Simulated assay, not measured.
Amino acid sequence: MSILMGYITVMTDSLATSIATLQEMVHAADVVVGFTGAGISTESGVPDFRSPNSPWMRNRPIPFDVFVQSLDARREAWRRKFIMDDLYRDARPSQGHLGIAALIASGRMPAVITQNIDGLHQASGLADHQVIELHGNGTYAKCLQCGRRYELGWVRACFEASGDPPDCEACGGIIKSATISFGQAMPEDPVRRAQNLTLNCDLCLVVGSSLVVYPAAAFPVIAKENGAKLVIINREPTPLDGIADHVIRAEIGLVLSAFIPRN
């Protein structure tokens, strides 16, 4: 039995060997790029989108074009947003997040590319520039017209007081959660940074992603085709397991705890 950073588990010889192999691959690499998906945050209590009975299925995000065109849709979008926020407001970074933060602190990983919108990578100690958010960030809001940032507490207070979401105080534009909704264009700067990092890494470490959401899931493929090693850590099989150099199916926090310095 092994006790590792809060985990109590029976670690099989094969899992211990897999983790050791991962450590060797990371230490042999000059540039590691991290690519994270929902699985790293489910260990923090954040529900993922595709699991059976997921609360996201009951509170589906409103498509971008509908959100922009309809005040009723915006009311409903914010109502659903605040329901979901309440479900994981107490979420804290998992051991997986801390493992990624440790890899970045070591200098081996310049930044992490993430599909997540929960801000837990920043909460683990990473600076904004060390987190490349392909799908935006759900911890604040922005005006779609002028880009002014708004804190969610203010948006919620206005919404609950009047029944309508507020307009931008600067330009009168529509305020929206700073996430990338279905039908909304991917953010140019994060996509460009992700592509550059992917093309310059020699190890791509995919953590907790189902690798079915495109175009984001194309980045590990780009890395592999450009000559990088590909490692996938996920509890379930992914479509890219067949081209990966190393696959670990285990609890993410348990695996990445191996990179957290011991006091």
Rank of each mutant, 00 (worst) to 15 (best):
I175D: 04
S162A: 06
P187T: 15
D167P: 03
R89F: 12
K176G: 04
R108N: 03
V213C: 00
M186C: 14
G183W: 10
A141R: 12
G227P: 13
Q145M: 09
A127Y: 12
A161G: 05
L205V: 00
I132H: 13
P187W: 15
G163K: 11
L126F: 05
A157S: 06
A141E: 06
I132R: 13
A217G: 03
G208H: 02
C171D: 09
D90K: 11
S124V: 05
P166M: 02
Q122V: 12
E160R: 02
R192K: 14
F159E: 00
G183R: 13
D189G: 09
H135P: 01
M109G: 01
F219T: 00
R148G: 11
L103E: 10
V191K: 07
I222R: 05
S124Q: 06
G172T: 05
A185D: 15
I222K: 03
H121Q: 11
P190I: 14
R89M: 13
M109T: 02
S181C: 09
Q145Y: 11
L134R: 07
H129W: 13
D189I: 15
A170M: 08
S181L: 13
D90I: 11
I100R: 05
A101N: 14
V131D: 10
V221T: 11
S124K: 03
K229T: 14
D90G: 12
G208W: 04
A217E: 02
C158Y: 06
I180P: 00
V206L: 00
A218I: 00
A223W: 06
E188K: 13
Q115D: 03
G125P: 04
R192I: 14
G125A: 07
G136V: 11
R156H: 09
E151S: 13
E160N: 04
C158A: 03
Y214W: 05
P187I: 15
C168E: 04
D164F: 12
A217N: 02
F182Q: 12
S181V: 10
C168Q: 03
G138P: 02
T198N: 06
C158H: 08
L205F: 03
A170L: 08
L230I: 14
S210L: 03
Q115H: 05
Q145A: 12
L199G: 09
K142W: 10
V212M: 07
G96F: 04
E151N: 15
N200L: 04
H97P: 07
Q95W: 01
E133Q: 15
V206D: 00
W154S: 10
I180A: 09
K176S: 01
P165A: 04
E151C: 08
Q130Y: 10
A217R: 00
N116C: 07
G119E: 05
S209F: 06
P190W: 13
C168V: 05
L152G: 08
M109P: 03
G147R: 06
T198H: 05
K176E: 02
D118K: 08
R156N: 08
A91K: 12
A217F: 03
A123E: 10
L230W: 15
G99Y: 07
Y88P: 01
A178P: 01
A157K: 09
G183M: 11
R192E: 12
R192M: 11
V213D: 00
A178D: 09
P93T: 07
A161V: 04
V221K: 04
P187V: 15
G119W: 03
A185R: 14
C171Y: 02
K142M: 13
